[in-house]
Design a protein around this nucleic acid. Structure first.
Lengths: 295, 295
DNA sequence: TAAAAATACTCCATAGGTATTTTAT
DNA sequence: ATAAAATACCTATGGAGTATTTTTA
């Protein structure tokens, strides 16, 4: 069976006259009759009851007419939808986000993206470690990643969004909590909590670099996956943690944040697979850039 | 566009390999490639992203694949449905019923028909006058009529179901209410209510015939459309009414029914258009016959 | 008898096949 | 170097056209 059969049958069913239906289809009457008969033969069902004076639908024909119309309509819809998806107007995207930006950035993006690209269905995965994000991008498990560069994979395109200052998260009864600001040197004999992960996270590496620069080796107490857990352990008094400033958007009872003087900055970037050029992905990446830096 | 394009695209999308898809479709690879490209050209959308090493769906392709699968599935369903309708297993039928049988027969048929022919969707129109039923059959507004013969139309096939005795409906304070049975002669000086309609209803003609046979002319007080209204007017004291016995299934406060001695009988028949030979109609008529006369 | 569908046949457009080339890994 | 898709070209099926017949109201 082919769509031709459906189109012809619908035309005849609507005209109830092979001659007029053929005219409407810009074809001759005999092949139209043939194709409709072929359809009936294939279905094994009489769709039309013909005399030379009158053509009328059988009960089966009525039922099939409805369905045939529906199918033809859905096919049009399908074409439109595909075109819209191709144009990037509609689609589905998964956004991954590194832990330290989860609580400040994701709410902003969730609101902003769904507002600016209403045809695209977004879902979000927060608290991801950077290496996992890279793997997820490679496997198309996520489409866009918000991560801390650098990423050593030529397949992944990254673009820096902004630089975040560092702060130190300490329990509120910790000696450092009494100070307005913390210098790197003051971390010398403090237990530090860092993110887990092989290879070590960007923050982990940055803390090591800063401490060595200040002339000492940092004392790591524990490695933790999620930023929320990290801060919870700080609240529990296990130690302090050096984190990017946006983490302060996560207010945990018993934890205070103090600027880290001379602590440098860590970049935040948006990343996606370089070989994916869908319009909706490009639009969404653009929207992320605009939403993070409205300038 | 033709269904071929959908089938081919679905095969390629499922195999993600033109060669294997072609094998599955029992055809060579080049024409498959051509047809899929033709589909993309017609839609104006790239559905597949091809390298010589890998074939993958674009976002638009994913969307279209879902829709294409759905369309192909629905087409199968449509064929099945048409076959079922043709076989008379499923369908839709409207049953019309004359007023005097509405309250005894329709409840029975409503239950019985939906039980015996569960695929067929029945609807019922009660309180119809016989001439209106004939018109409705002619116009295919109803498919089956339960009426009082004769019907003078060669297009309509009627088949007698049973014969109903006549009874007299009288107000409970009427002199005739005191009697166990009523003879025709006793209707001589009684106001009678009858059904309206041009030509006169079968019951109307039968009452005139009986009275003249007994040597007097009946005194008609009012003409009414629906049997329920007729009985209500009897309850209101406007007069008596000669009705077929099944009307007693309609118990109205203040009305009593008394057998009409020597009153003859009126037939009840099932009728349908002779030129309609659909299986579901024939089955339904058969079922009506069985349900009315279970012998 | 006249209008309309079915039949008989003819033709050519195009779906599909074969052989080969191109391309990306 | 190789696997796989694209291209080029050819073949032949079958969809559509023309002429005619059949049917029924």
């Amino acid at each position: 069976m082919e769509l031709r059969h459906l189109r012809y049958f619908v035309a005849v069913a609507e005209e109830l006259h092979f001659g007029r239906a053929a005219a409407r289809l810009h074809m001759a009457q005999p092949p139209l009759s043939q194709q409709v008969r072929a359809l009936e033969a294939e279905l094994g069902v009489a769709l039309l009851h013909r005399t030379t004076r009158r053509v009328e639908l059988t009960a089966a024909g009525s039922a099939y007419l409805q369905r045939a119309r529906a199918v033809l309509g859905e096919l049009d819809d399908a074409a439109h939808e595909a075109q819209q998806v191709a144009a990037g107007v509609v689609g589905r995207l998964v956004v991954g986000c590194v832990g330290s930006a989860t609580y400040s950035l994701l709410p902003l993006l969730a609101r902003g993206l769904t507002r600016e690209l209403p045809g695209i269905e977004f879902s979000f995965r927060g608290e991801m470690l950077v290496p996992d994000q890279v793997l997820a991008l490679q496997g198309n498990d996520i489409d866009i990643a918000l991560l801390r560069p650098p990423v050593h994979d030529t397949l992944i395109q990254t673009s820096i969004l902004r630089h975040d200052r560092l702060v130190v998260a300490v329990p509120d009864d910790h000696p450092l909590a009494a100070r307005r600001r913390v210098r790197v040197a003051q971390l010398a004999d403090v237990d530090l909590l860092v993110h887990a992960g092989r290879p070590h996270s960007v923050m982990h590496a940055e803390v090591v670099r800063l401490c060595r620069q200040a002339g000492f080796e940092p004392r790591f107490r524990a490695e933790v996956g999620e930023t929320s857990t990290l801060i919870t352990l700080v609240a529990g008094g296990l130690g302090a943690a050096v984190v990017p400033e946006p983490v302060t958007a996560l207010p945990i009872q018993g934890v205070v944040y103090r600027p880290l003087v001379g602590g440098g900055r860590v970049a935040l970037a948006v990343a996606h697979r370089r070989d994916r050029e869908e319009a909706h992905l490009r639009r969404a990446v653009e929207a992320v850039r605009r939403l993070v830096d409205p300038s």
